[in-house]
């Protein structure tokens, strides 16, 4: 069966998309400095994967299939404190106002990223927050234009082999020329600039190189930063964080668009109620059961290792399902796995 339409991002997917996003993240950071990112491309989260930080959200849940929207409503962010951004104005306002969030951090340029048309209500919130908006889909930029008519548009184009991704950066007119110059300069420094921007007033174009091969750690996501469905709030002892899954048996983690070259995932499970929860564990990728290996540390702890498919899908949800949850010895929660972190390797 093929995947139903309406949940896949437009344009390149898999390794090209992930590599382009990584380059885009590097490019933007070099050109404009620290960014407070709101990535509205959930579940792909391509740019958030590149920045390894930010707020995840949906660009327009009212345009999605209702079943997909209902499923995405189950996910929690910020250690379990909030739902995804983009599900409702009251919740959205609370997410943006949370002083622990990167959106509220000073000294950073606010930037929202989307791969599909953005709901007018969200556009208004972004305008009030003085956020710039980066859209991968030029059609989406056209739709946003009436709401953000006071902004200028910079066209950015990334090419990797035969793949090309068009972006539009919407930002205040007074800053557009300076940012364009900064982006051109950053692209030159990165050695990726295609042509001379002075000669070509249109899009800034970057020629992206494929990711280098190798076996190494590409990303590490601590429990407190997981975007998940089926777990309680994360807990911490200093900088060491963990999250207990439950009361549902199936725990799902949104991994977004993985780094280019990602080959396997390791989930550190540092505790379970009883050993059979590990013995009879089922791993899923985008809802389909997949084989996994256990690197057992003790009766009740292990690394769960899952090989990733090739080619990688545009976005990835990793699930871990236990046969049953257990009543915690003291308290009322029903618990599955205690997850410390996930690591993604090439």
């Amino acid at each position: 069966m093929s995947e139903a339409a309406g949940v896949a991002p437009p344009g390149p997917t898999g390794v090209p998309a992930a590599q382009m996003s990584r380059v885009m993240g590097t490019w933007l950071a070099r050109a404009i400095g620290p960014v407070a990112l709101l990535d509205l491309s959930f579940p792909a989260l391509n740019l958030m994967g590149a920045f390894r930080d930010g707020l995840p959200g949906l660009s327009d849940v009212s345009a999605m299939p209702a079943a997909a929207g209902a499923f995405f409503r189950r996910f929690r962010i910020a250690g379990g404190r909030h739902p995804l951004f983009g599900l409702g104005s009251a919740e959205d306002a609370a997410i943006l106002a949370d002083d622990r969030s990167i959106w509220s951090a000073g000294g950073r340029q606010r930037l929202a990223y989307a791969e599909a048309p953005v709901h007018p209500g969200i556009l208004r919130q972004l305008r009030e927050a003085e956020s710039w908006l980066l859209l991968r889909d030029p059609g989406a930029a056209m739709l946003a234009a009436p709401e953000l008519s006071e902004l200028d548009a910079l066209r950015l184009r990334l090419c990797l082999g035969e793949h090309a991704a068009e972006h539009v950066l919407l930002l205040p007119a007074r800053e557009a020329a300076g940012v364009r110059h900064g982006l051109a300069e950053a692209a030159r420094q990165l050695g990726l600039l295609e042509g001379d921007p002075e000669d070509r007033p249109g899009a800034l174009e970057l020629r992206v190189q494929p990711p280098p091969p190798g076996v190494h750690l590409l990303a590490e996501v601590p429990a407190a930063a997981l975007i998940h469905d089926g777990a309680y709030r994360s807990e911490a002892d200093g900088g060491y964080t963990w999250v207990w899954t439950g009361p549902a048996r199936h725990f799902r983690m949104a991994l977004g668009g993985l780094p280019a070259g990602a080959g396997w995932i390791k989930v550190a499970v540092i505790g379970v109620g009883k050993a059979s929860q590990l013995d009879r564990l089922v791993a899923t990728l985008n809802g389909v059961p997949v084989p996994h290996r256990l690197e057992r540390w003790s009766e009740t702890s292990a690394a769960v290792i899952v090989d990733l498919p090739d080619p990688l899908p545009g976005s990835l949800l990793l699930g871990l399902a236990v046969p049953e949850t257990m009543q915690e010895p003291e308290g009322s929660r029903r618990l599955g796995l205690c997850v410390h972190k996930i690591e993604i390797f090439a």
Binding site: M1, S2, E3, A4, G6, V7, P65, A67, A68, F71, R74, H250, R252, T284, N286, G287, V288, P289, L317, G319
Partner: peptide, 14 residues
Amino acid sequence: VGVRDQAQAFRWIA
């Protein structure tokens, strides 16, 4: 016969 996560049925049903 494959088994899949019913919560993500929107991926496969047209």
